[in-house]
Structures are given as structure tokens and as C-alpha cells.
Amino acid sequence: MSRAQRIGIAFSAFIAFAVGLITLLSLLLGGRPELYAELAGAPVFASLMTLPAAVMLRLVAITSAVTIVIGISNLLYVHLGRVVRGAFFSIVMIASFALTIWWYWSKQGDTSLLAAVQVPIESALAALLFLSMVGGGARVLGKRADIWGLLFVTVLVVVLLGSLPIESLAPVRAWSDWLMEIPVSAGARAILLGIALGTVVTGVRVLLGQDRSYRG
């Protein structure tokens, strides 16, 4: 790695660190005059502290909007490459893209195609999703022939039976409610806590410029 590259890496890591730290401090300390009660112009200072975060978040919103263009370019690039090889789905995709653009342009912003095509297709996919999930649930014990697989299926069956509107299944419903309120709720919270901790540690790694994307 050349000296110029090393300087570039250090510079990008420094920029990331500085911007990240300033935004974090601005988010945590901005807009809270009670934190600077001893200062003379506490409200003005607290308001000024929110400025870096507001600017950065605005920049993120603008950049996100621009990345839609990157996404569409990528989609066209990938599928045009496949059209040359005669991929049927890619031909349909490119034709649909062209038709939608033409429709929107010639009908002065009419979005009826979205309602007429995409909404029914997504509804059909949601129905397919149900079948896939039922099929997957039925195959659990084939994939995980252990105590955890058995527990998973047992809970699944109890909760499904408990949700049926049949009077004779009232005891099962009580079990189902208890499962959802105590063990499932506790497990879900534990998983979410773990994910939150992982998010903080990863965020700190990125904030400190230790992420691989800053290493050139």
C-alpha cells in the first residue's frame, strides 16, 4: 500500500470519526437547556447544539433519495446484461419498466398501473407466503429433529389451536395466552436486547473508524 493510499485511509477514517462524534453529541446534548443551566444563554446554546445533527440528517435524507437512482441504474444494468443472454424474466422486467415510464409520462402522473397491477400481485404473494409458512412449519421436525424442534412445533400447535373460536378449546386458549404473555414475550425481549447491544457495539466500531470500509 502506497503512502498516498495510507493517508487517504487515515483521512477518511478521521472524517467518519469527526462527523459521527459531532452528530452523536449533537443528538444527545442538543435541545436541552436544562443541561446548561449555569450558562447565560442556555436556550440559544442548546438550540445551536441541535444544528449539526439536523444538517447531517438532512444530508442523509437527500443522499438516500439520490441512491434510488443508483438502485434503478443497477437494476437496469443487471437485467440488460441478461437480456443479451435471452433471459425471459429480464425481458419482461425491462418491458414493464419502459411501459410504466411511458404510461406515467403520457398520462401526466397517473398511478393507476400501480393499483391495477402491483397491489393484486402483492396480495397474491401474501397468499403464497401463507402456504410457504405452513409448508415450512410442517418440515421443522425434518430439519431439526431435536428437543428444540419438538418444542417449536408444540408451541406452534398450542398457539394455533388456541386461536380457534371453539368453546371446547378454552383450556388450550389459556395455555396459548400464557405462552404468548410470559415465555414468548420474555424470549422476544431477550433477543431484542441482544440485538440492541450488538447495534451499539457495531455503531461504536463504525464511529471509531474501525470498520473495514475505512481501511482502503
Binding site: M133, G136, K143, R144, A190, G194, I195, G198
Partner: peptide, 20 residues
């Protein structure tokens, strides 16, 4: 997603293992 992964994927990780 985690529940579906457990039921249907050949190999699965749960929760915070995502980050490690």
C-alpha cells in the same frame, strides 16, 4: 424473520449472533 429462519433454513443464527 428469526422464527421463520429457525423453522425453514438449513443453518440458523439467533438474535445477537447476527453481530458476532
Amino acid at each position: 424473520g428469526g422464527a421463520i429462519a429457525f423453522a425453514m433454513a438449513d443453518e440458523v443464527l439467533i438474535g445477537e449472533q447476527l453481530f458476532s
